[in-house]
Design a protein around this nucleic acid. Structure first.
Lengths: 216, 216
DNA sequence: CGGGGCTTTGAGGGACTTCAAAGGCCGTGG
DNA sequence: CCACGGCCTTTGAAGTCCCTCAAAGCCCCG
């Protein structure tokens, strides 16, 4: 079984987990914390292309090197497996490979929804979209009766990470958050705690169809 | 076997194949032609999120409705399978599901590379990136000795499709193509035939690392 | 109190969009 | 054969959104 080849490793917030191009001897799954998947251009421009949350999978079967930078956004614990035995498992166990297929398809859908955001949405819509996703995730993880209209949550990432995610600068992120606050779409307690008085209004600002949009 | 449940269908250039939200009784693979996967906002803004080329797979196992619009870019022939028997096949045949996993992982990588383009590249870099991808694909499909430096190919898509793909307007696409021509990075024969005298120069304009960038 | 990291705010400029019109290309029909 | 209309593409002028550069504010911790 897999149990024999597990090992755990933790990374501090901000610490690099993998650099693009590195050889990759492990696959892993996130146990706790949040990590970002990103790509950087030679001149330093950076785009986040995925967010790894607990239970997400890291590493590509069949490839021995990393394609993207992976960085701990908060303190992260990974559960790692050696590549070779994992790939044997994949060959011998159809259920594992079907599960991995499911997860990959979900990621692909999320990536495509994000492409619409990056290519076509305004800065204000981008911010509203991100807040809507975070609010929704919070509510699903932590459902409380009577909070369908008013939701509150902490931003799990810095303004810089938001900017990298949204294809904006930190200044624009800051300005648009201020603008949404002044419009009454959200309100803030401190810099990081967000209150959404009317989720439908936020979705409307995000430019999404009413169904709620992206997968995570 | 699958042979029993195949059916073929062709679509004319520009014809819609699937609308987002439609129920989806089939999965399919592209036999000939090019189709686009795109998402449209209520006000008409549209972003292409994938391009389907011959041998590409269409449809998501485990989901009975479409998430995206699919449109024929050229005349397209699909080979379709009914969902239910296909999903049974997927359960009973590990090799099929592993193959599908491979393809999905490739698509995910391509989507992520595209996210960098959409979020962080300038209009000029976007055009150069697209031209580089098309040039490279042409060269791989059609390798001729001595053409590593000078490549030529037809644009398979209209300016509008390019704009939808790149997150730009058609006017900006047109202006940037003109600009690349005036800089000598490319030259044109007619509106659609592109000559790349120096592929390395084009890659440089695309802002990619020297390795050549995206997967397709 | 002082320093560093994160965030906000301001002023100015540039890249891309928007709106408008003209320029090719091509098939149809007179 | 050539004129006409439609479609795609190019070009121009003006405007806007977002970025860049700069500085100040906030907060935490030593």
């Amino acid at each position: 079984m897999l149990e024999k080849m597990k090992s755990y490793k933790t990374f501090e917030s901000g610490e690099p987990i993998i650099w693009a191009g590195d050889p990759l001897q492990f696959v892993a799954s996130v146990v706790t914390g949040v990590a970002s998947i990103s790509r950087t251009m030679e001149d330093g421009r950076r785009q986040m292309v995925g967010l790894l949350l607990p239970s997400d999978f890291l590493g590509r079967p069949g490839r021995g090197f990393a394609n993207y930078d992976v960085t701990a956004v908060s303190k992260v614990t990974l559960c790692r497996f050696e590549r070779a035995p994992f790939e044997n498992l994949l060959k011998s166990s159809p259920s594992v490979s079907r599960r991995l297929l499911e997860m990959t398809l979900d990621e692909l859908d999320a990536a495509r929804d994000w492409m619409l955001l990056l290519g076509r949405k305004t800065a204000r819509e981008k911010i509203a979209s991100l807040l809507a996703i975070l609010a929704r995730r919070e509510t699903i993880l932590n459902p409380k009766a009577g909070e369908t209209l008013s939701m509150r949550f902490d931003l799990p990432i810095t303004r810089e990470a938001m900017a990298d995610y949204l294809g904006l600068t930190i200044e624009t992120v800051s300005r648009q958050i201020t603008a949404l606050r002044k419009s009454g779409v959200i309100s803030l307690e401190g810099k990081r705690h967000v209150i959404v008085p009317d989720y439908a209004r936020l979705l409307d600002e995000a430019g999404d169809d009413s169904d709620g949009g992206a997968d995570y």
